[in-house]
């Protein structure tokens, strides 16, 4: 059974400059215990997708629409804010990039952990505390009894991220969404946090939606990788397959952007141009203006996400993509 599934998710934000089409018809589904990575640059809609997955977008400033949206088989489309509150944190939880702003600065980390147990499991204070300390220990925090009383600013960045991870796993949810969980950390700490995440996931059998801009971060964790560009998925495949056999020129570009430690001094492989204006996207394929392989029709009509075999999908005319039905003229 799918832990999470969303079909034809669309998100738009009206702004004075025009309507920003942040997410344009995305399908995602995650199996039990699976890790799906959503990769793309800032502004590609990956974070918006993650927020929409838990209905965290402010409905007064955004338009969100999906044909189907389920968590553990339960339909989310008609759930109100009240019902969502009990789902978030219990069945699905989230790990944010900036642990310092995700934690309450005037509350000890232990008290914040307690809340997970008292709110969702109605445990007594003392039991909650014991569970919290256990949770802190499980994420490799030394001397958890002392750390229980610490305030977020008293901890290092890596420790805070560990606390967030402890919080996310505390209620043993079926799904965790991690939005750039290591971007704010130092390189040496990044690897520790990633290995902690993957270990916790394996131990608990949790499904993970991992969001990152960095293919190398994602590759070490994910079973499947979906690459997003300007609000659409441009390529999706099992992680090994995607890295070994990337088809979409943007995926190739992103892979080129991952510099290898054994490269010698010299020029970097670059993708020309910049992201399209989200309020005013190009007519044809969104990547065509930056694409080295673009042909004439790429600038005219939009390609569909097409199956190329081996559960590998790509949205590109040059690699077996078909044209999107609505743009035929």
């Amino acid at each position: 059974m799918n832990v999470f599934s969303v079909k034809n998710l669309r998100v738009a934000f009206p702004t004075p400059r025009g309507i920003i089409r942040a997410v344009e018809g995305i399908d995602l589904s995650i199996e039990r215990g699976e890790c799906l990575a959503l990769v793309g640059e800032s502004g590609c809609g990956k974070s918006v997708t993650s927020l929409a997955s838990l209905k965290l977008l402010d409905p007064s400033v955004s338009i969100v629409k999906a044909d189907e949206h389920t968590i553990l088989g339960e339909n989310m489309l008609d759930k109100g804010e009240r019902e969502m509150e009990s789902i978030r944190g219990k069945k699905a939880s989230m790990i944010f990039q900036d642990a310092l702003s995700a934690l309450n600065p005037v509350m000890s980390v232990g008290k914040q952990l307690d809340e997970v147990f008292t709110l969702h499991f109605h445990l007594k204070k003392r039991e909650a505390k014991a569970r919290s300390i256990e949770a802190l220990r499980s994420v490799g925090i030394e001397n958890p009894e002392a750390r229980y009383r610490a305030f977020p600013h008293e901890l290092s960045g890596g420790m805070r991220q560990r606390v967030l991870i402890a919080m996310a796993f505390a209620s043993n949810p079926a799904l965790i969404i991690a939005d750039e969980p290591t971007t704010a950390l130092d390189v040496t700490v990044q690897k520790q946090i990633l290995s902690l995440l993957s270990e916790m996931r394996r131990k608990n059998g949790t499904a993970l939606l991992l969001i990152s801009h960095d293919l190398s971060v994602v590759y070490s964790m994910a079973d499947r990788i979906a690459v997003m560009y300007s609000g659409r998925i441009v390529e999706e495949a099992p992680a090994e397959e995607l890295i070994r056999n990337p088809l979409h020129p943007y995926t190739k570009g992103l892979m080129g952007a991952v510099v290898r430690i054994d490269d010698k001094k010299g020029r970097f492989t670059q993708i020309p141009g910049g992201l399209p204006d989200p309020a005013n996207k190009p007519e044809g394929c969104y990547f065509a203006p930056r694409c080295a392989e673009a042909a004439e029709k790429c600038g005219k009509c939009r390609p569909k996400l097409a199956y190329t075999g081996g559960s590998h999908y790509v949205r590109c005319f040059m690699h077996g993509g078909e044209r999107d039905g609505r743009n035929e003229q």
Binding site: G140, V187, K191, Q192, S195, S198, S216, V217, M221, V258
Partner: peptide, 30 residues
């Protein structure tokens, strides 16, 4: 060497990350 080791790569990174973390790394980092 620690810095060089912590660079993630697209070749063979998958196994490397699944290695168990060092015993007292939390303390080290803190």
């Amino acid at each position: 060497r620690m810095l060089i080791d912590s660079v993630l790569s697209l070749d063979g990174g998958k196994t490397a990350i699944n290695a168990p973390p060092e015993a007292n790394e939390a303390l080290q980092e803190e």
